[in-house]
Design a protein around this nucleic acid. Structure first.
Lengths: 335, 335
DNA sequence: CTGTTAGCGCATTCAG
DNA sequence: CTGAATGCGCTAACAG
């Protein structure tokens, strides 16, 4: 057990009541200059530090926000976390981080735990599939905002990027480079990011009057290894005849590169490639990656700001905020 | 405010006292089968969920552990976090993550805040320079364990990797490749990781009877850009004549590569290179990186295990644990 | 200006 | 087997 100095201790030494100590410490009015100074001094001497647990119980706020991320190890989310942590710390909030690992069960469990810990609000990148946990958050009246991935429920705040635009930009770039048969490797179909980026892909095709071919769309997990295996098997039976590849994220693009180089194929000469996210390493891979830059840090930062806004407005009828940030194309050497 | 169902509510409906509810819910003895079932049912129906804040205040434990990391954005620490989160979640602990950003002030502030939030224990990768905050943790009797970086204070538990060995392996590898003039680019001299790796470098030199030349050691920040700039200026005035470079981490190695490629120099032909950490991307850079593999995930996991051990042992005289993990060489193409 | 009282939600004595 | 009383540390309403 920690050795904590409480207000009671200070009160006893100062010969005043606990209440007075509390008031002095919290800079409330109606407390004598001298007694206040005395208390402040004692507090410093004994290194008094408030028990935020007790305070939280009393006041009804913990100054903590819960963060449920779908994949901690992905550098995209590292960027998001960084944005969240920075913005939160600036406002004296701390963050409780949970990793759902793209599993709904863990997401739900995390949310329940966070509510039990009485976080003031929650930030989530949804796994998708089910949204029972979101309803639970609403029922419990815990403010929350979605990050990166939207959802079909009204009155829910979110901070996302325009993924249709991103998918469009990536595809259009390849089209302008002269490609017509473009393989699109995407991930879990349960989240809006994949859906929207795919929609952007189709939009670009249609705008440039290229017929959509569903055989050119491949689903896989969002890990390097998965794209690597997929690409390897695809290269085995290359009757599809694609000349370019667009991927759901940079991870997948890296897997593609790996598979290609093993076969002795070069990017962009043998196959043009564009990734998504613009993680820090995209510029430093075997062949620097052309990709779509996502405002990772800003996404996290903005989400915190909106959440805190909702917390401060006492009005329960705060209308939901929908922030949509713009991604942009970063041309490097892979296409 | 959240709409929470408390024991009081359940008690009223069930027509029993709060106490009985508490006992039933916590599976304590001395409570009638029927009343217990009734209470359990009501709890489920009204989705009762315990208030961990109140419980924590009463019981004296929050089931939360604080984590203070020196650089969230670095993939090395992402790996560590992942290990921490996984191990913690498994034991029903949650983690409050703080980023000190290699600044002592933020580290200290974070620790103070964590103590106020009454975390059960703390995990830290020290920034170095000062250790007042560590003393504070000891004074407050809050269990903690250091990760990755040691410290010169006795009775402190830590989980680190053998950095002398790692530095040695990296250097020896280059020596065996025929290099005698090896540039060593390192980082903040305030932490044991840099000190030890440098010691390993010197140890390898001396073992292979190569004279240590302090002009071949360069200090910089541990970011890609810093190594890039440093290398660029070094290449401008290359009277040092080194034929190989070892770096403090993979980030720095990437910066080196970037500078070299801009000058039209090739790795490993013009300059051999070995990094450190084996971050996920080390295998996928312009030239796949030879590096030292650090057990990132295991470091975090083990640290949690030790911390939890200390928490469970009620004995205040738990002796400090010193875990030293073995890094190993991963040979790829950069040397 | 200050002390008393009360209560946040829970678990733990101690009586009955 | 169960209820009443107590207190974790803190703040807020109300008296004085």
């Amino acid at each position: 057990m920690a050795l904590r100095v409480t207000q009671k201790v200070i009160a006893k030494i100062a010969g005043v009541s606990v209440n007075t100590v509390s008031r002095a410490l919290n800079d409330k009015p109606d407390v004598n200059r001298e007694t206040k100074n005395k208390i402040l001094e004692l507090a410093k001497e004994f290194r008094y530090t408030p028990d935020l647990l007790a305070k939280g119980l009393k006041v009804g706020e913990t100054k903590s926000i819960g963060v449920v991320l779908s994949d901690i190890s992905n550098p995209f989310f590292s960027g998001v976390i960084q944005g969240i942590e920075g913005a939160a710390q600036k406002k004296d909030y701390s963050i409780i981080v949970c990793n759902s690992n793209e599993e709904y069960e863990r997401e739900e469990k995390s949310i329940r735990l966070l509510i039990q810990k009485r976080v003031d609000g929650v930030l989530i990148t949804l796994v998708g599939r089910k949204t029972l946990d979101i309803s639970y958050l609403k029922d419990m009246n815990v403010p929350f905002v979605l990050i990166a991935r939207r959802i079909g429920i009204p009155e829910v705040s979110y901070v996302v990027a325009d993924d249709v635009l991103g998918g469009f930009l990536a595809t259009e770039h390849l089209i302008k480079r002269g490609h017509k048969k473009i393989l699109y490797i995407t991930a879990s179909p349960y989240v809006t990011t994949t859906q929207d980026r795919l929609a952007g892909y189709r939009k670009a095709l249609s705008q440039y009057e290229i017929k959509f071919d569903e055989n050119l769309v491949e689903f896989t997990n969002a890990k390097i290894e998965d794209a690597y295996k997929l690409m390897k098997s695809l290269l085995g039976r290359d009757k599809l005849g694609f000349t370019a590849v667009a991927t759901f994220n940079d991870y997948l693009a890296l897997g593609v590169i790996k598979a290609l180089y093993e076969k002795g194929l070069k990017v962009p000469d043998d196959l043009a490639l564009v990734g998504y996210d613009d993680i820090e390493f995209a510029a430093l891979t075997v062949v620097p990656l052309t990709t779509i830059c996502m405002p990772k840090y800003e996404l996290g930062k903005k989400a915190v700001e909106i959440l805190l806004e909702q917390l401060l407005e006492k009005s329960d009828v705060s209308k939901p905020q929908h922030i949509i940030m713009k991604p942009y194309l970063v041309v490097r050497e892979s296409s």
